[in-house]
Design a binder for these strands. Structure first.
Length: 476
DNA sequence: ATGTGC
């Protein structure tokens, strides 16, 4: 990307002033090197987002941004219903409420010695992974509705985990105002036996060690110490979220003319927040958020069972669970005035600063944990929301490394077997039902996650707390 | 992301 197109606001903040049909500026958070390597499509897409009705302040792209469906992945945009603001299915993405949950184990790296292979085998055996994977559960229609209404709270009530888990989950495990009646039978059908499954693509369950502490004070408050073993679970709402996304996208394209919305790109299909269609989508999307929260809760329970068999000294506790594909109603102060906004985060993690009431009480003084999943075989990071993050991009940060190469391109260039062998030589065990999937997820098909989080940190979006390195990766 | 697709 040509950096001359931008007004450089500061070292890591780049702006395109509004022109043409843009209502607000487009802003990219990135280092100069990341921006130079960034897909031109990102500017085109956030500039299009900046044209949508009721958009507030600016359309943003995070340092890991790349080309997505309509909105870039790594995009943030907030809309005001009082100014004709819209909600967009493409602004949330197909994998509704995809997110990361981080578990502490109470184990140290030394506790894994001699057990790593057995643990990898047991996790791979018990965690359903891959395209169309099925879990042990099969939901009746009434259980499906309970799950879609109560999220992780439903899972805990059914014996999958403890109330303590909910305390450290976004929305305390239950997204309010979900409406299972707006979720089609087809979506429910697809999800019936997919609860507690990982899925495919970039989803994974990883056993990691804390390799570096970058903020000792916050790390201690988060219960993280060097050489600790932790577990990251990265997955979303499976077939249900995808089906909801597909159906509403189609409906929003058809309805756009009725709502008098001129779309700069039909992939940006959206509906006014105050329309019946907008409200129906929000009800269904929140039900999908509950599905993802319940899914990660059940996976937590399965993981606990595996650890109890192999490493009974382990005590798995949730540090935090946060989504990076959502649209949420939040209060934000704009020019001294508090406004209720519909914040779309697509491949962007919520990153609320210290003292925000949405953060669990014991973590509140330190800022919300921001969980950044790296690409397979590379590092992940834990960051914390900062006091200034609310004013920068509505309290948002990056979500991962971000692809630098398409899946097709990665398949041409890399071999799954080779990647597994190479990582094994570095002490990282990859277990996956699909070598093709492994090739698509090759570490070199992604940006450098360390550079991405450094840019997020330097821009002030979130503050780096700890670095995690993989030991075992169960790959979807 | 996805019962991976014109």
């Amino acid at each position: 990307m040509d950096t001359a197109r931008f007004i450089r606001q500061s070292a890591n903040v780049w702006e395109i002033a509004p022109h043409g049909a843009m209502r607000v500026p487009a802003i990219i958070f990135a280092s100069e090197a990341l921006l130079r390597d960034m897909d031109d499509k990102v500017v085109e897409q956030i500039s299009n987002v900046a044209m949508l009705p009721g958009i507030v302040k600016a359309a943003y792209a995070m340092p890991d941004a790349h080309w997505g469906y309509g909105f870039p992945i790594g995009g943030v945009a907030a809309f005001d219903p009082e100014e004709g603001g819209v909600v967009s299915a493409g602004g949330v993405g197909f994998d509704i409420s995809c997110g990361v949950r981080l578990l502490r184990t109470g184990l140290r790296e030394a506790d894994l010695h001699g057990r790593q292979r057995a643990l990898a085998a047991a996790l791979f055996h018990d965690i359903p992974a891959g395209v169309g994977s099925h879990g042990a559960l099969r939901l009746t229609p009434s259980e499906m509705d309970h799950m879609l209404t109560d999220g992780a709270r439903w899972a805990v009530a059914r014996g999958y985990g403890t109330p303590m888990d909910l305390l450290h989950t976004e929305e305390y495990g239950r997204m309010a105002d979900a409406d299972p009646h707006q979720v089609s039978e087809a979506a429910k059908q697809r999800q019936r036996d997919e609860m507690g499954t990982l899925g495919s693509g970039n989803h994974y369950l990883e056993v990691q060690k804390v390799s570096q502490i970058l903020d000792a004070n916050i790390a201690a408050a988060y219960g993280l110490h060097e050489d600790d073993i932790v577990i990251s679970i990265h997955c979303g709402s499976r077939g249900l979220g995808h089906q909801i996304g597909t159906e509403f996208l189609r409906e929003m394209v058809v309805a756009a003319p009725q709502h008098k919305i001129a779309l700069p790109d039909r992939e940006l299909a959206c509906a006014p927040i105050d329309s019946a269609l907008g409200q129906r989508y929000l009800g269904a999307m929140r039900a999908a958020i509950n599905c993802a929260l319940a899914n990660r809760q059940i996976l937590t329970d399965t993981t606990r069972t595996v650890f109890a068999k192999l490493l009974p000294a382990a005590r798995l506790s949730v540090l935090y669970d946060v989504s990076h594909n959502t649209c949420k109603v939040e209060q934000h102060e704009i020019d001294g005035r508090k406004r209720k906004l519909y914040v779309h985060r697509k491949g962007a993690t919520r990153a609320f600063g210290p003292d925000h009431p949405a953060i669990p009480e014991d973590l509140r003084p330190y800022g919300q944990p921001v969980l950044i999943g790296g690409s397979m075989g590379t590092a992940s990071y834990v960051l914390a929301g900062t006091p200034q993050s609310m004013g920068l991009a509505f309290g948002s940060a990056c979500h991962g490394a971000g692809r630098s190469m398409s899946r097709t391109q990665a398949l041409k260039q890399f071999g799954g077997r080779h990647i597994v062998d190479e990582l094994e030589q570095r002490g990282i065990l990859i277990r996956s039902p699909s070598l093709r999937g492994v090739a698509e997820e090759a570490p070199d098909a992604y940006k450098d996650v360390t550079a991405v989080v450094a840019a997020a940190d330097q821009a002030g979006l979130a503050h780096i707390v700890a670095r995690l390195e993989p030991k075992i990766c169960i790959k979807g």
